[in-house]
Design a protein around this nucleic acid. Sequence first.
DNA 1: GAGGTGACCCAAG
DNA 2: TCTTGGGCCACCT
Length: 103
Amino acid sequence: MRSPSDDFISRVLNVVSSIPAGRAMAYGDVAAAVGTRAARAVGTVMSHYGADVPWWRVVRASGHPAIDHEARALQYFRAEGTPLKWSRDGVYRVDLAVARHSP
DNA sequence: GAGGTGACCCAAG
DNA sequence: TCTTGGGCCACCT
């Protein structure tokens, strides 16, 4: 049973799960990969269905990880060797210039 | 069918 | 570099 809505969710999960370790994509890039501009919808859907996909590999266009999940994502990034850019205040962001994955 | 919400994006100051 | 405001799309009630 695949409702049209599930199709959107399945596409998002499929793209995210296709991101190799050590790389990352922006929400807008995932949205574009599924044929839409709904970057926010990607985040909303991931918040409920992202438990089965590497959600930490999806970050904002600025390189910041999902809000309230920076610490959780950081552990995965360090384990996978994802290129990070550190700020003086202890905040980090993914170096999409190097880690950006093209679908 | 309509309105509100959200793990967002972009441009300007 | 950081903050503010407006806009886009899909999901839920």
